[in-house]
């Protein structure tokens, strides 16, 4: 459904997107994962035709982006609707941009996204969550085959986020293809396919579970321990340690396979003053994300 080949984009002589290729199948929820400033928004803008690539090509639904405009909708990272217009006026405007005049359909969309109570409220007065819903509704006004969503749930409360994701699944089940950029792990984990970019380069691609193997042969140890900078420094000093990652009182240590668990335990024990026992676990997406991002920066 979306075919991007070797996209390149530079700003002021610096390559922000470096030969990124993507292949997204129909009905798939495809997540573009990466840290801030990795080039996610630049990629999505090139895919939508808002920005021209310096090099490379994009095809949507087997045609050029310019010809496929009626086939896709776009929800920008920022609220891009008209604050002075009401919810319905905004929706009607975007629908008319695509030649859609079926008001019944628009009313149904408003109902589906629980915007009925705000139908005649000015869009600028909506809360963050409802603004997102309005943006989504406007992007769906012309019933597109593909939906591009640039960080659709950034700054949204978990309940609304879940509602939006339930809907993304529903849209996907209806046969729509969704392309989502995010840096939220739990959101990435919900995607069918993931692509990971850092510093404009594609680092890994695959399903959320397969992408974990992008770290290669690693082991993850965890232990219940409070954060101290001394401890982190000591662990990072051990040869073969890829990453330390603290989750509250839970410390994850990602190491290469040949690292001896006992050596690690000894080093940590000497800093802690008590004996430490590490337990083995699987790397989660966040471990992968941070490890890959740091790798990208090296």
């Amino acid at each position: 459904m979306i075919e991007a080949e070797k996209l390149v984009k530079s700003f002021k002589g610096v390559r922000r997107v470096d030969e990124v290729s993507l292949h997204v199948k129909k009905g798939e929820i495809f997540g573009l994962l990466g840290p801030n400033a990795a080039g996610k928004t630049t990629v999505i803008r090139m895919l939508c035709g808002i920005m021209e690539a310096d090099n490379g090509s994009v095809r949507i639904n087997n045609t050029s982006v310019q010809n496929a405009k009626k086939d896709f909708g776009y929800v920008a990272q920022y609220f891009g609707q008209y604050a002075e217009l009401t919810v319905f006026e905004n929706l009607k405007f975007y629908a008319e941009m695509y030649g859609v005049r079926d008001e019944k359909r628009l009313e149904a969309l408003i109902e589906r996204y629980q915007l009925s109570a705000f139908r005649d409220s000015e869009a600028g007065a909506l809360s963050g969550g409802y603004k997102r819903r309005l943006a989504l509704v406007c992007a769906l006004a012309h019933d597109p085959k593909v939906l591009f969503l640039d960080e659709p749930t950034a700054g949204i409360d978990p309940v609304t986020r879940k509602l939006l994701w339930d809907d993304f699944y529903a849209l996907s089940a209806e046969g729509k293809t969704l392309f989502v950029t995010t840096h939220y792990m739990e959101e990435a984990a919900r995607c069918h396919q993931l692509a990971f970019i850092a510093e404009g380069k594609m680092i890994a691609q695959g399903t959320p579970s397969s992408i974990k193997s992008a770290l290669g042969d690693v082991l993850v140890y965890s232990v219940k321990i409070s954060y101290t900078p001394e401890m982190t420094k000591a662990i990072d000093g051990v040869d073969g340690v890829v990453l330390t990652n603290q989750f509250g009182d839970d410390l994850h240590i990602v190491t290469e396979k040949q690292v001896d668990k006992r050596v690690l335990e000894e080093v940590m024990g000497s800093v802690y003053g008590e004996e430490i026992t590490l337990s083995e676990s699987e790397p989660d997406l966040e471990d992968v994300f941070i490890a890959l991002t740091q790798g990208g920066r090296k």
């Binding site: 803008r45 939508c48 035709g49 808002i50 405009k69 009626k70 896709f72 909708g73 776009y74 920008a76 920022y78 609220f79 891009g80 609707q81 008209y82 604050a83 975007y94 941009m97 695509y98 406007c138």
Partner: peptide
């Protein structure tokens, strides 16, 4: 400034 232009650029106008 209000980011509405970006949203408009995506439409076929």
């Amino acid at each position: 400034e209000q980011h509405t232009l970006e949203q408009l650029f995506v439409t076929p106008i």
